[in-house]
Simulated scan of single mutants.
Amino acid sequence: MGYINGIFERATIQGIADYLLFGIGPEKDERSYEERLDEPYKRFERAVAKYDKNPSSELLDLSNEVTSETAAVYMEIGLQVGFLLAQDMIKNLRREKQTEYR
């Protein structure tokens, strides 16, 4: 999973600033988190129902498991990125403080 390491490597203040200044931001979405989560899940449930009418379908259970694990992994990655950004800010502040005293 080299792309995850790439996320950690770009987790710098400069990386975020470059993205904010030069990158393309996400499309604005005014829906609530619940709406954003419910809509694709309902579509998925309807698609599964075409193949398995059982409301406690194994496909739905496995999908929930995959989704839950994916959310947990990305939450952990997000938290680690947050800490990396905090470390980078501290490093930048210390460097600036050192140049003030020279």
Rank of each mutant, 00 (worst) to 15 (best):
D38C: 11
F22K: 14
R10C: 05
A11G: 01
I13P: 03
A11E: 02
I24P: 00
I24A: 13
F8M: 07
I16Q: 08
L20Q: 13
L21V: 05
L20V: 11
E35H: 05
E9S: 07
Y19I: 07
I13M: 11
E9Q: 12
T12W: 02
D38M: 13
N5S: 12
I16L: 11
L37T: 13
K28W: 06
G15E: 02
A17D: 08
E34M: 14
E34G: 12
R31F: 02
E9D: 13
Q14W: 07
G25H: 15
I13R: 01
Y19H: 10
Y19S: 04
Q14N: 11
R10V: 02
A17G: 03
Y19M: 08
E9Y: 04
G23K: 05
E9F: 01
L21P: 03
L37W: 10
E34R: 13
I7K: 02
I4C: 02
S32K: 07
I24D: 12
I7L: 08
N5M: 06
I24L: 10
E34A: 11
E34I: 12
R10N: 07
L21Q: 14
I4N: 03
G15N: 00
R36G: 06
A11N: 00
D29R: 05
L21D: 08
P26M: 11
Y19W: 12
T12V: 04
I4E: 05
I4M: 07
Q14F: 04
R31W: 03
R10Y: 08
E30L: 09
P26T: 07
S32L: 05
F22Y: 15
D18A: 01
G25P: 01
L21H: 08
E27H: 11
L37E: 14
E27T: 11
I13K: 05
A17T: 12
I16M: 10
T12F: 04
F22G: 07
Y19N: 09
E27Q: 15
I24V: 13
G25W: 08
G23E: 01
A11F: 02
F8S: 06
I4H: 03
A17M: 11
F8I: 00
S32Q: 04
N5V: 07
E35W: 04
G15Q: 05
E9H: 04
R36C: 07
L20F: 08
D29Y: 02
G23N: 05
L37A: 15
D38Q: 15
Y33T: 14
G15K: 02
K28M: 08
G6S: 13
L37S: 14
I24M: 11
G15W: 03
T12C: 04
I7Y: 01
E34F: 15
Q14A: 15
E30Y: 10
E35A: 08
S32G: 08
R10T: 07
S32N: 09
Q14M: 09
D18F: 00
I16W: 03
Q14P: 01
Y33L: 15
R36E: 09
D29Q: 00
I13E: 02
F8Y: 15
I16V: 15
R36Q: 12
E30G: 00
P26E: 12
I13L: 12
D29S: 06
L37M: 15
E9K: 03
I7A: 03
I7Q: 04
N5G: 10
N5I: 11
I7R: 04
L20C: 12
D18Y: 00
G23T: 00
K28P: 04
D29F: 01
N5T: 09
D38K: 15
R31L: 05
R10A: 09
G23S: 03
